[in-house]
């Protein structure tokens, strides 16, 4: 790693102030950033650790909305009972040690195309709350490793409208255990949403054709005639584009069946 300082602010305001420095980078749980730093693939002069900020931690439910602090680790999300599909998703990210450190805000700020959380955020139409504004899920994800966040913007919380029913189905990439394909299907107040992670060169996306079909008829058979274009899929040693396109369909079907 290159040399850098680590600051440990105790409030969002302090963190934001520290991040005004152009050479500063926010540090969430570090489960992705630290390995990246070890490879010297990033050279911040200052890391601003968000894990000591109490106001960014914790989970609450109010009026059908689950609010999760940006610095909340996966293990706590996995333990909440108000949104079981999200709990199941969080409980299957990485491994137990990673879940104790990795945070929802860190994952969403990174927006790895194979990460699990983006599918839940997009699949429920959640709201990303930052120190300056609120960003709708549909506006937040802008391609792999790219988001609507400004440089000194911190995800302080994520607000999930708890869907009537939901399921996340993940097919593991066998080495990293990230999603080779993960599909989040939710029955929301505004209709069915289907969000797919792991599959696309453009990162997480909504499979709108499936949503339309499922809004007409919420049965896995509704997908029968749908084909997902393999062209924009990721193709690598773990699976061809065609395989990923196929898995999107299979995982979507499984999610629908799990919802029942």
């Amino acid at each position: 790693m290159y040399a850098f300082d680590v600051e440990t602010p105790s409030s969002v305001a302090e963190a934001v102030a520290a991040l005004k420095d152009e050479e500063a980078t926010a540090l969430g749980g570090g489960q992705t950033l630290i390995p990246t730093l070890k490879q010297r693939l990033a050279a911040p002069e200052k890391l601003v650790s968000l894990s000591g900020i109490a106001e960014m931690k914790g989970i609450s439910t109010d009026g059908g909305v689950l609010t999760i602090g940006g610095a909340t680790p996966h293990v706590e999300v996995a333990a909440q009972g108000d949104f079981p599909a999200l709990a199941a998703l969080a409980g299957n990210i990485g491994d137990p040690a990673v879940r104790n450190r990795g945070t929802i805000g860190g994952s969403l700020a990174n927006n790895d195309p194979s990460a699990c959380y983006p599918s839940a955020v997009l699949g429920t139409g959640a709201t990303i709350v930052t120190n300056t504004r609120e960003i709708a899920a549909d506006d937040y994800f802008q391609g792999m490793f790219t988001t609507a966040l400004e440089d000194d913007e911190i995800i302080t919380a994520v607000r999930f409208p708890i869907p009537k029913a939901a399921s996340y189905q993940k097919f593991d990439q066998p080495a990293s255990r990230f999603a080779l394909v993960g599909v989040f299907v939710a029955k929301t107040a505004d209709g069915v949403r289907v969000a797919v992670t792991g599959a696309s060169e453009d990162g997480v996306f909504r499979w709108t054709e499936a949503e339309e079909a499922l809004n007409k008829e919420f049965r896995s058979d509704a997908l029968m005639d749908l084909d997902i274009n393999a062209m924009n899929m990721i193709g690598d040693l773990h699976g061809t584009k065609e395989y990923r396109a196929h898995l999107v369909k299979v995982m979507t079907r499984r999610a629908i069946n799990a919802i029942g």
Partner: peptide, 15 residues
């Protein structure tokens, strides 16, 4: 009391 990977956490964070 929580299991962590000590290679993926800074010493300063364990202060």
């Amino acid at each position: 009391g929580k299991l962590v990977k000590s290679c993926t956490m800074f010493a300063i964070e364990a202060d």
